[in-house]
Simulated assay, not measured.
Amino acid sequence: MADEITVLVNPAARGGRTLRLLDPVLQRLRASGRPVSVIVGTSAADALSRAREAVAAAPAALVAFGGDGLVHLAVQALAGTAVPLGIVPAGTGNDIAGALGIPRKDPLAAADVVTAGGLRTIDAARLGTGEWFAGVLACGFDSRVNERANGMTWPPGMAKYLVALARELRSFTPIPFRITLDGEAVEREAMLVAVANTRSYGAGMRVCPDARPDDGLLDVLVLGAMPKGEFLRTFPRVYLGGHTAHPAVTLRRARRVEIEALHGAGDVVAYADGERAGPVPLTCVVEPGALRVLVP
């Protein structure tokens, strides 16, 4: 139905705060007088399949009710189509919503944006695998922490990531990368490489604070090799964007970004929008105007 709002809910959500917020959000959306349907897949793959079927029917919007990971899933169904993306943030970081001015801590206000907001056309980036991302792709220290944390069963919650960070820091060494920007290659040892369509990831880490999602370019940050003590002093500055003046930081813009880990680096995996995108080498290409988003 052309006026129907389809709401995509995280298939991994099992009670708790996220689902407690769902009913009030659905009521607010239905108060607009439009029909509202809900998609909850049995898995991420099933949710994506259902989302693609819904988008093929050309609803008024596909709304991601969740965090950046669910927005990432919705983008796989929406990129390159005319169906708008709505976001009702209900995750931990909600960085993509924040970059677009969508209320991150008030789900009902975000629901009002879906029904009464305007349309904004933004870029998205596509990997060589065909996967899209709307926010930030990163590989290096932070992706190694993610890999380690995802393999742990204890402790629960954010404590798992803190333990993984401390363990990874003990063993981490700078990674030798070859990074090619619009055909221009440079080889450099780095702690972190980030490719950004929006400014932040990881619950507010402003890795590329000047990134704009509608300029037809990807912002690329390389944090060069440094001693661990210096890294510990520098890394927290990312939350305020204060790291960009550090001499080990390089910031560039490009339409096409190729990342390769050189011989001896071991396994290097990238994460996009907080989701595992797979090992390097990989290529990111910006696709201007690939997404339509409902914004304030």
Score class of each variant (00 low, 15 high):
residue 4 E to N: 08
residue 11 P to E: 03
residue 12 A to C: 12
residue 16 G to W: 12
residue 17 R to V: 13
residue 21 L to R: 15
residue 22 L to S: 04
residue 25 V to K: 07
residue 29 L to S: 13
residue 44 A to G: 02
residue 47 A to L: 05
residue 47 A to G: 13
residue 49 S to P: 00
residue 51 A to K: 07
residue 53 E to R: 15
residue 56 A to Q: 14
residue 65 F to P: 01
residue 66 G to P: 07
residue 67 G to I: 11
residue 75 V to D: 02
residue 77 A to E: 05
residue 81 T to Q: 06
residue 84 P to S: 11
residue 88 V to L: 06
residue 90 A to Q: 06
residue 100 L to F: 08
residue 100 L to R: 02
residue 103 P to M: 12
residue 103 P to K: 13
residue 118 G to F: 09
residue 134 A to Y: 03
residue 135 G to M: 09
residue 135 G to Q: 07
residue 138 A to N: 13
residue 141 F to I: 11
residue 143 S to C: 08
residue 143 S to W: 01
residue 148 R to W: 05
residue 158 M to W: 07
residue 160 K to W: 03
residue 165 L to Y: 06
residue 165 L to I: 10
residue 166 A to K: 12
residue 174 P to W: 10
residue 181 L to K: 08
residue 186 V to S: 14
residue 190 A to N: 03
residue 193 V to A: 11
residue 198 T to N: 06
residue 200 S to V: 07
residue 202 G to F: 04
residue 211 A to G: 08
residue 213 P to C: 13
residue 222 V to T: 15
residue 225 A to Q: 04
residue 231 F to K: 04
residue 234 T to F: 11
residue 241 G to D: 07
residue 241 G to E: 05
residue 242 G to I: 02
residue 244 T to F: 03
residue 245 A to P: 00
residue 259 I to N: 01
residue 264 G to N: 09
residue 270 A to S: 09
residue 271 Y to P: 01
residue 272 A to T: 12
residue 274 G to C: 11
residue 280 V to P: 01
residue 282 L to A: 04
residue 284 C to P: 06
residue 285 V to Y: 00
residue 286 V to R: 12
residue 289 G to V: 14
residue 290 A to R: 08
residue 291 L to F: 09
residue 292 R to K: 15
residue 294 L to F: 03
residue 296 P to E: 09
residue 296 P to C: 11
